[in-house]
């Protein structure tokens, strides 16, 4: 979500700022831009989406939801990443 916050930078009063969200990712506090999808989070973490099992607030997320599921304030994200070999 884009919000106008003229107070943040008086030199650029019309600049639109991305609202930030605080999430917990594998127990670590992390800040992401509002509207960040699960797929985008994985990209930022350089994790290949196909090799990751994701759980948000104790619910396992289907692979086909990664691209559309937007993170919300306070989400508890658990990521399990697999590497190849067997």
């Amino acid at each position: 979500m884009l919000i106008y916050d003229g107070a943040v930078n008086p030199l650029q009063p019309y600049r639109l700022y991305m609202k930030k969200l605080q999430i917990l990712c594998n127990g670590q506090p992390q800040e992401v831009a509002s509207g960040t999808t699960l797929a985008r989070l994985l990209e930022d973490l350089t994790l290949p989406a196909d090799s990751v099992v994701a759980e948000i607030n104790k619910k396992i997320i289907d692979r086909d939801q990664y691209a559309t599921l937007k993170l919300a304030q306070g989400d508890q994200v658990e990521l399990i990443r697999f590497v190849g070999g067997g």
Binding site: P48, D50, S51, V52, V53, E55, I60, D62, R63, I80, F82, V83, G84, G85, G86
Partner: peptide, 15 residues
């Protein structure tokens, strides 16, 4: 499995 995508799929479906 050998393939990491299959490893992830299997754990997801099991959970």
């Amino acid at each position: 499995f050998d393939d990491p995508a299959m490893k992830a799929k299997a754990l997801r479906t099991a959970l």
